[in-house]
């Protein structure tokens, strides 16, 4: 009995302290260092923020380069497939071009009309105004994690991005900024388990919270008592949190109070960050 306990102790100490020929550090030393780094980062000591920001920016850039082969292969396959379809597509495009030529005549008239309409809408807090205060960002990394649903974009505090700012794909809300570095930011997507967005929907303007489920379909919570969600109703941001502008479309309701998002989070290439609503960090 005592001998078996001794064996365990010797093997465990050896596993912790032994260094192989090619190893410079013992495991116990590395575990200790990792624990210190973890607690420094979690408890957000002031000096850790700029360090983390520099590390993040550097690693995101390297990751973008490292990921290029994995992006290049599907692109090449797609290009070969496209080559075969080019002839028929060319004919279709020629026909479409004819249609556009005819429509060109009316463009000038529509442009003037659009200018006049924008003048009318300028004073209101609407989507038109907020679109002029958005910046387009490229999605650098969208590595899918089983635990966190987030993306990295190529704009950071140098472009005026702050924590909490809403992020859109076309006019559809996809998430909000949760971490900013100098040249990049992390966006928490609506389907992440940590995401909570105040929303409104239906003719009665029902208020609810859209909670990420960790899967592809977020869920409506905090509904009025006994309320049954019908399918096919469009869900919009309510703006109650004073972070998101009211009326940004999010998705449509499906069964069991779940929401099918308008924007597919796995297909994002470029997103827009709304700079208009928030001027200081809210988190």
């Amino acid at each position: 009995m005592s001998s078996s306990r001794d064996d365990f102790g010797i093997a465990f100490r050896s596993a912790l302290l032994q260094r192989g020929a090619a190893q410079k550090f013992s495991l116990v030393f590395l575990i200790f260092i990792a624990s210190i780094i973890f607690f420094l980062d979690v408890y957000g000591f002031g000096f850790m923020k700029p360090i983390r920001s520099i590390i993040n920016d550097g690693i995101y850039r390297v990751s973008l380069v490292a990921s290029s082969p994995s992006r290049f292969i599907p692109q090449t396959t797609g290009s070969v497939t496209n080559l075969f379809n080019i002839k028929s597509e060319n004919e279709k495009l020629k026909k479409a071009l004819e249609v556009y030529r005819q429509k060109e005549l009316s463009v000038e008239y529509l442009t003037n009309q659009n200018k006049n309409l924008r003048k009318i809408l300028e004073s209101d807090e609407t989507l038109f105004q907020f679109q002029s205060n958005t910046i387009i960002s490229k999605v650098l990394i969208d590595k899918s994690s089983p635990y966190l649903k987030s993306i990295i974009i190529n704009r950071g505090s140098s472009s005026g991005i702050l924590k909490g700012m809403p992020v859109l794909d076309k006019e559809y809300l996809v998430g909000r900024v949760v971490e900013t570095n100098y040249l990049s930011s992390r966006v928490l997507l609506l389907n992440d388990l940590n995401s909570r967005i105040p929303v409104t929907f239906g003719e009665d303007g029902v208020q609810a919270i859209l909670k990420g489920s960790g899967g592809s379909r977020p869920v409506l919570e905090y509904l009025p008592e006994g309320y049954v969600v019908e399918e096919g109703i469009e869900v919009f941001t309510s703006g109650k949190d004073r972070i998101f502008l009211p009326g940004s479309p999010i998705g449509t309701t499906i069964e069991n109070g779940k929401v099918k998002l308008f924007s597919e989070s796995s297909q994002l290439s470029f997103v827009k960050v709304d700079l208009s609503k928030q001027r200081k960090e809210a988190f």
Partner: peptide, 19 residues
């Protein structure tokens, strides 16, 4: 860094497997 976890978390997890 890539996944957005606190620094050192995956290291501890990997080092446990290594141990």
């Amino acid at each position: 860094v890539i996944m957005g976890f606190p620094l050192g978390l995956s290291s501890l997890s990997y080092l446990t497997v290594s141990l």
